[in-house]
């Protein structure tokens, strides 16, 4: 393992950890379910994909690297679908939007 590869892998992992922390701070700070879903589904997904990319850079094209890339592709495909289903379920179960929200076209259309 040469030093450039090691440094690049560590940088990817640190960026991913930073985005994970920002997403979780969003989970704490933002006011309602939909905003929390926005923060977590973007930041945590790309943060975890960045960690997996760091593992790929550190380990090269062995068993670890290929499995890491497969897990990253899988996360990028499934995580938005889960977020979409959770948002729809929350709206159908009657969770209100934040009190300062501007508009709710979904409710106006009678769903």
């Amino acid at each position: 393992m040469n030093s450039l590869q090691h440094t690049a892998g560590i940088i990817f992992i640190v960026i991913g950890l930073g985005f994970d922390v920002f997403g979780c701070i969003g989970l704490i700070r933002l006011p309602d379910v939909y905003n929390r879903l926005q923060a977590t589904t973007k930041c945590v997904t790309l943060g975890t994909c960045s960690i997996l990319l760091g593992a790929f850079v550190l380990k090269g094209l062995g068993a670890t690297g290929v499995k890491a890339m497969l897990a990253a592709v899988f996360l990028l495909l499934t995580s938005p679908v889960a977020a979409h289903a959770l948002a729809r379920g929350a709206h159908k179960s009657g969770v209100k939007l934040w009190s300062k929200s501007v508009v709710d076209k979904y409710k106006q259309d009678g769903n």
């Binding site: 985005f19 969003g26 905003n35 973007k42 930041c43 939007l97 300062k100 501007v102 508009v103 259309d109």
Partner: peptide, 26 residues
């Protein structure tokens, strides 16, 4: 676009005034 989205959300979350203006559009 995904990278831009992450930086955007991170800046919004770390801002003390929490500059959000949410709503559902069609």
């Amino acid at each position: 676009e995904c990278l831009k989205a992450n930086i955007d959300v991170a800046l919004r979350v770390l801002n003390p005034k929490l500059p959000i203006n949410p709503g559902i559009v069609k």
